[in-house]
Deep mutational scan, measured.
Amino acid sequence: EPLWIRPDAPSRCTWQLGRPASESPHHHTAPAKSPKILPDILKKIGDTPMVRINKIGKKFGLKCELLAKCEFFNAGGSVKDRISLRMIEDAERDGTLKPGDTIIEPTSGNTGIGLALAAAVRGYRCIIVMPEKMSSEKVDVLRALGAEIVRTPTNARFDSPESHVGVAWRLKNEIPNSHILDQYRNASNPLAHYDTTADEILQQCDGKLDMLVASVGTGGTITGIARKLKEKCPGCRIIGVDPEGSILAEPEELNQTEQTTYEVEGIGYDFIPTVLDRTVVDKWFKSNDEEAFTFARMLIAQEGLLCGGSAGSTVAVAVKAAQELQEGQRCVVILPDSVRNYMTKFLSDRWMLQKGFLKEEDLTEKKPWWWHLRVQELGLSAPLTVLPTITCGHTIEILREKGFDQAPVVDEAGVILGMVTLGNMLSSLLAGKVQPSDQVGKVIYKQFKQIRLTDTLGRLSHILEMDHFALVVHEQIQYHSTGKSSQRQMVFGVVTAIDLLNFVAAQERDQK
């Protein structure tokens, strides 16, 4: 057995438009009618409502009807409940999964919650491996369901041993009777949507819809739904939504950006999952974080739909894509998950301010006199920076000697690579993860907040409520011999709460 199987392995699926269902090699399930009293909570997966979006479509000038398939009504709160249950049931049916076995899954959280929910009911041990950027709410729900959680670096490539995929496979090879159901490759993922989600949409719309818009992560949702719609409703256009920084969209030119990270969760990847059939997507749109969270908040405030950030991405694209539809036509959007997962993220004004998705003037509360002053007023001194090749031991000596707790790590040209902190280095040394002679590049981390000289002290204040420091950066445009230009970030300084307090105190003292 291989040590790991690539999540982007070539698909062996034989589905073709027009091929009889009787030739399918898979076990198919028909939607079942729910009894009045459910035998367990797993029976509350599927049969989610279709809700008309009344205000947002009109606000953006849509002539067509805009409908939302509300997947956050599933038992675990997301569309991923469907595939989690289906993968477990299919693994039980073919004898792969037996009582007492362990389920391991690399996930952005929602599939993990679905699997942990099913594992709690069915009696399996469950280990979820997820990147650090995923919300604390997801972690809390997983723990409450009895799952064990392993976190991995957000910026690790999918084929790196440190990625959530790599760590999951390492655990599988170490733990007896453990299984990775593997949402990236498992046919049960798109089949769950082909058999149930798509049929529900067709039934709820009486077979009449002209466009379907869905955000894409593993691709199982859009693949399964689109294949069924292509068979039953061939005139329906399928629109895929991919965040900026991901590479799922086609044509490839759409993916060209210097951005590699994004805040919206559960969609987009740096590889093409095996289950994603991009041939059934008629057109791709890219979405960005700001519009995703703005539209998610709009869905909550104006439509009462308590959905997550990827739902915002989907609707932001839908109001663009559906401009081509006329009166009497219908566009369906998939709202994948609930706001429950993001209470401390985009639902929080403070978080939105820190990330730059909300401006101070958007909030009406009274601010102190210094709130709208610029960061450049602080008069920061030149920063202490270190090269990635310097040793951890030497870096600790320098920081202690100069009285700093942290320093930016830059390359020879001064471009920011990340940050090192005294606390992080000492804990890594004590844990045996690094040696004093190791290069400081081994303990770089990139989960820090950046701020510009033109940003306000109010925004800085919000950042420092949650973080010990902020890195002050400025952009530099560099022209190359080819005539092309590129933008790079340079370090201007490091600012802490002490710097802000000293500035405010000094100004008030001078005024007296």
Rank of each mutant, 00 (worst) to 15 (best):
P243C: 03
Q323H: 13
D467C: 07
V443R: 09
V315R: 06
K286H: 02
H462T: 11
T260L: 02
Q376Y: 04
V410A: 13
C392N: 07
G441K: 12
R509C: 14
R400D: 10
Q489E: 12
Y342W: 01
V319E: 08
I416D: 05
I416R: 08
L500P: 15
E412Y: 10
V280C: 09
E253K: 12
R278P: 02
K402M: 14
Q376M: 11
A321D: 10
A382N: 11
I463G: 14
T274N: 06
V375W: 05
D411E: 07
C392L: 14
N255K: 04
H468S: 14
F503H: 11
M419I: 14
F469C: 15
A470F: 06
V375Y: 05
N288A: 15
T496I: 14
M343G: 03
E365P: 11
L299P: 04
E291V: 13
K283H: 03
I334M: 11
H394K: 10
E465N: 11
P251D: 02
V495P: 08
Q323P: 04
G309L: 00
T391S: 14
A249V: 02
L254K: 07
G304A: 01
I498D: 14
H462V: 15
R340W: 03
T294F: 14
G441W: 07
L500I: 12
G268E: 02
F285R: 04
G379K: 10
Q329K: 11
L378I: 02
A431G: 13
V443Q: 12
E252G: 11
G403M: 08
E258G: 15
F448D: 02
D337Q: 04
T260M: 11
A316L: 14
S481A: 14
Q326D: 12
Q487N: 15
L378D: 01
K345F: 00
E258Y: 08
E360Q: 15
D282K: 14
S287R: 04
Q329Y: 08
F469L: 12
E397V: 10
Q511F: 11
T314P: 11
V333Q: 02
D270S: 05
K446P: 10
Q326E: 13
M343F: 07
S427C: 10
Q302F: 10
M466E: 10
Q302R: 12
G356C: 06
E291Q: 15
A413M: 14
T482A: 15
V504K: 12
T395F: 05
